[in-house]
Design a binder for these strands. Structure first.
Lengths: 221, 221
DNA sequence: CAAGTCTATATTGTCGACAAATAACCCATG
DNA sequence: CATGGGTTATTTGTCGACAATATAGACTTG
């Protein structure tokens, strides 16, 4: 089963989603241990279910497991965040390239529409753009790549980690309008089917984000 | 646990490794179904163990599982191979860039030594370079990136898939010496700490490989 | 008093059995 | 003869219990 679209059908699915949500949103904090009996009573399911859920969390690299010892939520370090953004730069850069190649004209038109609606909201209440809009934009391009490996890696893997970091370190720069301009240029490149430029702009866009975060982490760690 | 370095300690580990080997090497063929009771008797372990092993295989995207139906080995299509190489291009390109930045001088010297030894072998018996040497070269650069996310994705994820395709479609072009030259140039760029060039050359190197395979698949599918 | 060891406890790993859902098969019917 | 429905049978999902390992604490000893 794919983790981001499909709905939970089995008990293990549900427990996995609940656990992941609890971890990603910070309810279960980074570095803490996941006790199987404890979670078993908490979620009112058998230990086998919890075990399977933890296995899947391990697969997403959200927890680390040591044999005969147990599972801990991964520790979030500033260095880890930088590493994550390096991977994201490579992967989303490629996604933008492939999107310029593989998105249909209709999908590109939709994307332009999305950007327009964002622009309206930025103009009215400037504070909007932070979360949902940005995520939505990146989602569309990732899906537009039409490369299932890439999509899975980014949406099931990287993005949940990014969210974890965002909850812990709380990132939100003064990048609202500049980020919007960057989005606009990326979509223009995609509209022109300029794969090279689309990739380059996306990579820069993510690099800016990265350095922005790095500076923030250095000044207030 | 990390899938590529650590040794199996628990029964589920062992079963996972055995199963993965059987699948990657083609003993269990692509598209076939994995029956839990069957494997349970075959490996002489409980069904719970087989289940956990299958879960990990799903995590590597080696099998796909449908609820209440079971797990099948992923189907290998030519399109899937192209998608895989697109991801590999992005990821290994970034790995080369980071290797140019993060490898120690000693590690780079070792890498040059490796290349020399490859050169000797190519000169003596021309047929060598195909498998082990190529893999070894790429491994070193991936590890040289010092980015654990990247390393895990490539070594635990992509590389086993590549091997699966290699077993099924059997790829080996007339690229022996040209590939060697490409390796040489990449190492030169890394030695010069030229991140930009290292990434570009690695990406081209993988792109050549990709088009080479594509041509082969078109002419004899 | 510190350090090491042994014991006791709790947690993880493994197993076989039961429940639920799917797939296969047979039979009836148009 | 093909097709649809119902029943059986197999497979997956879930559970509780037992075995093995690691952690924590008490105890002994230098």
């Amino acid at each position: 089963m794919s983790f981001f679209t499909e709905k939970p059908v089995t008990a293990a699915d549900k427990t996995f989603f609940q656990l992941r949500k609890a971890i990603v949103e910070g309810e279960i904090e980074a570095g803490s241990k996941l006790s199987e009996p404890e979670l078993s009573t908490k979620f009112a399911v058998s230990r086998a279910i919890v075990r399977e859920a933890i296995n899947r969390l391990e697969a997403c690299h959200i927890v680390e497991r040591k044999a005969n010892v147990g599972a801990r939520v991964v520790a979030l370090s500033p260095e880890g965040l930088v590493e994550l953004y390096q991977v994201r730069e490579a992967l989303e850069g490629m996604a933008a390239r492939l999107a310029a190649k593989n998105m249909t004209d209709d999908e590109i038109a939709d994307l332009n529409g999305l950007l327009d609606s964002h622009f309206q909201k930025v103009k009215s209440d400037g504070s909007y753009y932070q979360e949902a809009g940005d995520v939505d934009f990146h989602y569309r391009i990732i899906l537009g790549s039409k490369n299932s490996n890439l999509i899975t890696m980014l949406l099931d893997g990287i993005y949940h980690h990014i969210r974890m970091y965002r909850v812990k370190f709380g990132m939100a720069g003064p990048r609202i309008t500049t980020a919007f301009d960057e989005h606009k240029h990326i979509v223009q490149a995609i509209s022109n089917r300029d794969e090279e430029l689309a990739e380059m702009l996306m990579r820069r866009h993510i690099m800016y984000s990265k350095t922005n975060i790095e500076n923030k982490l250095i000044t207030q760690p």
